[in-house]
């Protein structure tokens, strides 16, 4: 398990220098759009409470990220917080809270770069808030209102949000020529599949605590505006994806990808034992390392979702 120790510091805060200037600017455009829309939405939702509530809760997320628990081999589980914020406050308010957290981390502690801040906000603020929110909504639709759907949806949302952030980071690094996608994606996704479990455990614990002591708070998130959100986020993801694909096509160094395919991914081999379900994090029979890496992430997410769904069905039948 020692490789986890080695890779654990590779978190999602991208420092300056790793993203190319073009990729960084695309990140800023996406972030500015999301923040501007979030400011208008939460203003309508919260009125004069907007500033004190968002500010104090941003300080809360920052402090909560320090609460950790030992997992194994010297690693610890801790919180990113996007999903928890999205469930308690609604997705747009969560975007603002996470933006403040990530911005202060960059400005005050050099945790993540200034030019890279745009994509750091998109990866850890916007993506985590919306994947968490959608997973939670989905479970609520399947299971109906209640404690089970809250906790199962929270766990699924938390895990998926960390994976989405990690996968997006890998794509951005690859589009910048800082790492071939065939290496970055399996490495980031593999490490964060475990980190995501810590995120899910803490999120569920926190939601259970809030549900037990102040259930009324959860109404705020449930009533938050999010309908218009879906389209915006899909448009944003579409832009990000097409830019990534475009930069691959236009990249002056398209060599990395083929080279990895030829070298048969040394990192994938080193990580081998972890992926007993999907050997080398690649699906046999598909030769292109990248395509099969992406497929593996999608498949992994579907498997987790399937298990969660089955558990949820069973819970409901027991409850009925």
């Amino acid at each position: 398990m020692s490789w986890i120790n080695l890779l654990a510091p590779v978190r999602l805060h991208i420092p300056d220098g790793f993203l190319s200037t073009t990729v960084s600017l695309v990140g800023w455009l996406l972030a500015v759009g999301a923040i501007g829309y979030a400011l208008r939405q939460t203003r309508g939702q919260l009125g004069s409470r907007q500033i004190p509530l968002m500010g104090v809760l941003a300080a809360f997320i920052f402090a909560a990220q320090a609460i950790n628990f030992p997992v194994a081999g010297g690693t610890s589980g801790h919180l990113l917080g996007g999903t928890l914020a999205a469930i308690v406050l609604g997705p747009w308010a969560a975007v603002l809270v996470m933006t403040a957290v990530i911005g202060v981390q960059a400005l005050l502690f050099q945790d993540g770069g200034l030019l890279a801040l745009g994509f750091n906000i998109v990866n850890m603020g916007v993506l985590t808030a919306f994947t968490g929110h959608f997973a939670f909504q989905l479970l609520k639709r399947i299971l109906g209102e209640g404690r089970t759907s809250l906790l199962v949806g929270g766990a699924l949302g938390a895990w998926v949000s960390v994976m989405a952030g990690a996968a997006a980071t890998a794509v951005e690094l690859a589009a910048s020529g800082a790492s071939p996608l065939g290496v970055a994606l399996p490495a980031m996704a593999g490490v964060h599949a475990l980190i995501g479990i810590g995120e899910a455990l803490i999120t569920v614990g926190a939601l259970a605590f809030i549900y037990a002591s102040r259930r009324d708070l959860l109404d705020l998130g449930a009533r938050a505006p999010a309908k218009a959100a879906a389209n915006w986020v899909i448009v944003g993801l579409g832009i990000a994806l097409s830019v990534a694909v475009f930069s691959f096509a236009a990249s002056p160094h398209p060599d990395g990808l083929e080279r990895v395919a030829a070298d048969a991914g040394f990192l994938g081999r080193a990580l081998g034992p972890v992926y007993t379900l999907l050997p080398n994090y690649a699906i046999p029979g598909i030769s292109n390392q990248v395509v099969s890496g992406v497929l593996a992430v999608v498949l992994g997410t579907l498997v987790v979702f399937g298990i969660t769904w089955a558990l949820a069905r069973r819970q409901r039948r027991l409850g009925a």
Binding site: P52, A72, L84, L201, G205, L207, R214
Partner: peptide, 30 residues
């Protein structure tokens, strides 16, 4: 692991409530 995660989660939930209620007091005094 499950137990440790639950304890850490409870702490975060506790902190959520404290932050929320603090923001309500701040807003009232503002």
């Amino acid at each position: 692991l499950w137990w440790r995660g639950k304890v850490a989660g409870g702490m975060v939930g506790n902190l959520t409530l404290r932050a929320f209620e603090r923001s309500e007091r701040i807003h009232a005094s503002m």
